[in-house]
Amino acid sequence: MIRSELIQKIADENPHLFHRDVERIVNTVFDRITMAMANGDRVELRGFGAFSVKKRDARTGRNPRTGESVHVEEKHVPFFKTGKLLRDRLNDK
């Protein structure tokens, strides 16, 4: 399923809404999750999962082509942990 299919499903269930509003609803949900993480915040959606930011320490990496050492700065990466309900549903529990 891709974004446009998700929008279409929600539009089909809500014939009273303009299609462009459904697009804005779906976009708002995903944009706010990204914005929160860019702020260093967590997003906890019970039953679905939690988005958080993990810190990766600085390290000395290696250019795999040349074998040359390169310094890799500390960085922050997005992380998702599946919620219990969804994890159970994936395994027909």
Binding site: M1, I2, R3, L6, K9, I10, E13, N14, I25, V26, V29, F30, I33, T34, L45, G47, F48, P78, F80, L86, R89, L90
Partner: peptide, 25 residues
């Protein structure tokens, strides 16, 4: 509607589908 977005994503995953949200993940 927020709930509806999350349940459609969950349902697709439970069906074994991949859910690809462009510019999100």
């Amino acid at each position: 509607l927020v709930e509806s977005v999350l349940s459609h994503v969950s349902d697709a995953l439970v069906r074994g589908e991949t859910v690809k949200i462009s510019s999100f993940g």
